[in-house]
Design a protein around this nucleic acid. Sequence first.
DNA 1: CGCGCTGTTGAAACTTGTCAAAGTTTGTGG
DNA 2: CCACAAACTTTGACAAGTTTCAACAGCGCG
Lengths: 246, 246
Amino acid sequence: MPEPEPVANFDTDAFKSACSKCNLRELCLPGGLSHAELEQLDTLIRVRRQYRKGEYAYRAGDPFDSLFAVRTGFFKTSMLTEDGRDQVTGFLMTGELMGLDGISTERHPCDAVALEDSELCVIPFAKLEELSREAPSLQRHLHKVMSREIVSDQSVMMLLGSMRAEERLAAFLLNLSQRMTARGYSPSEFYLRMTREAIGSYLGLKLETVSRVFSRFHSEGLVAVQQKHIQILDIPRLRSIVGQQC
Amino acid sequence: MPEPEPVANFDTDAFKSACSKCNLRELCLPGGLSHAELEQLDTLIRVRRQYRKGEYAYRAGDPFDSLFAVRTGFFKTSMLTEDGRDQVTGFLMTGELMGLDGISTERHPCDAVALEDSELCVIPFAKLEELSREAPSLQRHLHKVMSREIVSDQSVMMLLGSMRAEERLAAFLLNLSQRMTARGYSPSEFYLRMTREAIGSYLGLKLETVSRVFSRFHSEGLVAVQQKHIQILDIPRLRSIVGQQC
DNA sequence: CGCGCTGTTGAAACTTGTCAAAGTTTGTGG
DNA sequence: CCACAAACTTTGACAAGTTTCAACAGCGCG
């Protein structure tokens, strides 16, 4: 697969970020911090980088030294098993943090690739640790962010361990919808940035199964599907599919 | 289901712990810390509690204020979905840490129950945070522990998302074996503390399937199974089952 | 404008789940 | 310490769900 040319990575002041002025601050790392703490964060996060669709923020095995926050765009993380199977471990929207899984081994265990032209804020982890030693509420906040990641991975485990294909896709759509809402977008209409195969990989299904379930949902009037354009027509019924007692 | 009577929870000096003298220190939270840092940890972890088989260390919804380290015994954590399904999210052996998933909401999202008579070290989280603000290497270590939890949850996601029943059980047995080895026990012979149903719940399989796969492994000479007593006879072949190219 | 990637759909094969019955172990109370 | 009940495990037959293989359609990029 030919790889897109990397766009120049501007580390210049033009791309200097300021958490305190970022419209994502409630969703992102700064969430819940005081104004003074925000200004401390500003000293930390000095670099944004741009990525073209298809470009990698990092690859499995790369040394870890920073976390990345999605400033604009959409990312996918995926891991390779020893036996060569590739699995998508997450999709990341604006305000979400990538790279926490690299802290333990000081190497990134997964690939992170842009699914559309995107921009990331680079958060040097050593400096974040330093700052969080001085600011207890930032420290607590970082711990909460990491813990939230654990909880959300566990809920994917539950999805994979106990749900059937329809339930998985319904849960997936509702999850996207909810995250879109939190970002001020329509809860019911959006473009999927990922392929059926990536959705399937994330949900533990084959791409054909994903496609079939989309078709079934479509014919039942739950969603309007036109390739990547999705319109959720009946959120309550989707919810009832997820919550189906077994 | 009748619940066992709680054993008295001794908070006395008799049960005072000392990480610096604990034979699990290399496996547990203290792993990799200097002697001076260990002594700081000693000031933190002052309480051990004992649990009878079937007793809960905490339940979903309980307020979070401490992490727990398994000192002796064996624990299982499980979550309840909204629709009433219960899923096992982990099995914990000596030296392993429970409760990280409670930091984000300040409530435990899962139940933690002893699968045999056990002892836990109670680690007050606020104090751990305090201490880790003063000791950068403890701070880094805590972050690594949390990150390791994320990575291990992700590898369960991969297992659930891409492996078939035989592969899952083989991976599960190899994982147990490896953790037993790290604790100085035999890598090939152990008692399963959990039921087939709990294994199935963890692996996203029904208990009958778990039982059948055990029987198949048995008849193929991979393991000797007598109820909960397991003897792994052919680790290389188990590995090759896990690593099967799809 | 056409090639390749992505998505859809069908039929058959396979894996796992469901239901049912019987055997085994464990724990409790007499 | 034994007997009984409850919980756990095993096994079989069948059903349901998912994957596999295959063919084809559609869209988008060069």
